[in-house]
Every structure is written in C-alpha cells, then in structure tokens.
C-alpha cells in the first residue's frame, strides 16, 4: 500500500491540509469535524433517548424535522473527514482503530436510519418505542460512543505517521 500512501501524501491538497500554517487548514478542518459530530451524534442521540422513553410527550415523528440538520452534520464530517484522511492516509489506514471507527459509524447510521423510518411509517403512537425500536435506539447510542472514542484514540494509537520521507 505504501506507493498509494506516498502518492496521496504528495498530492497538493494533502500537502496543504497537513503543512499549511493557516488555522483554516488542518486545525480548521478538525474543528469542523467536531462541530459536525456534535450535530450528527448529538441530535440522533437525543432522538434515541426519546425512543428509549425520555421526554415521552415529545412527538417523535416531529423530531424527524431535524433530519436536515443531521444530514448537515453528516456531510460536514464526510468532507472534513475525507480531507483529514487525505492529509495523513498512512496514519489512519494502517491503524485498526480507524476501521473500528468507520464500521461503528456505518452501524450507528444504519440503526438510526432504520429507527427514523419506523417512526415515520407508524406515525409513532407509543410513548416509548416498541422493544425493537428500543434495541435500535440503544445500538445507535452504543455505536456512537464507540466511534467517538475510537476517533479520539486515533491520535494515540497510530504506529506510522507518513509513508513518504519528506
């Protein structure tokens, strides 16, 4: 994989994100990644808490109006995450923790999407979700905790930083 890593690391965009002294480069992109996380993870977690039976008199289908804000968080993190990956491809792609992070994000998104669809289809009556809904809500919360922790641990668990010798 090293030739691919070296090629990626030497692209102009990778070099700019990694080496520019501008606060809008690596630091700014990392900041956007945090803000996107707050909205994506935060709002979907609030939705999961509602399904688990907290704030029972909040109409759950109405919470789906916030889906655009969740998508905003998701796309912000998709783009910022891609740029962060491009800046340090070797660091992330040689670390098993990175794959754990991606897998748990995918699982959390699938769980919360399934939950959202159920709530939309059933014009959600119960004050708590049905048992299956509560399982999906718990899974969403659990996967988010693992992915956020894995993301934070990426800074401490990498074995290599760059494949290129600059």
């Amino acid at each position: 994989m090293d030739p691919v890593f070296i090629w990626l690391e030497q692209t102009a965009l990778s070099v700019w994100v990694r080496e520019s002294p501008s606060m809008f480069a690596f630091p700014g992109i990392l900041t956007l990644h945090t803000i996107g996380m707050a909205f994506l993870v935060g709002l979907t977690s609030a939705f999961s808490l509602r399904i688990l039976g907290f704030a029972r008199r909040v109409p759950a289908p109405e919470m789906l109006k916030l889906v655009p804000v969740v998508w905003f968080g998701f796309f912000l993190n998709l783009v910022s995450g891609f740029l962060l990956l491009l800046a340090y491809p070797t660091k992330a792609l040689t670390n098993p923790v990175f794959y754990l992070k991606l897998t748990t994000i995918a699982l959390a998104l699938l769980a919360v999407r399934a939950l959202g669809r159920r709530v939309a289809d059933l014009s959600f009556r119960p004050v708590r979700g049905w048992p299956g809904d509560r399982v999906l809500a718990s899974l969403t919360l659990g996967f988010w905790v693992v992915s956020v922790t894995a993301g934070r641990f990426l800074a401490y668990t990498h074995s290599r930083l760059l494949a290129s010798d600059f």
């Binding site: 709002l43 956020v148 922790t149 993301g151 934070r152 641990f153």
Partner: peptide
C-alpha cells in the same frame, strides 16, 4: 478523559442545541 469530553459535548449539543 478526552473521549468522555467528546461524548459529553455530543450530549450537551444534542439536547441544549436541540
């Protein structure tokens, strides 16, 4: 502790932000 700090951030923004 940092991981907890980020999870706490999500809880705060997810509910207060909501």
């Amino acid at each position: 502790a940092e991981s907890f700090h980020f999870v706490g951030l999500c809880l705060l923004l997810g509910t207060v932000g909501l």
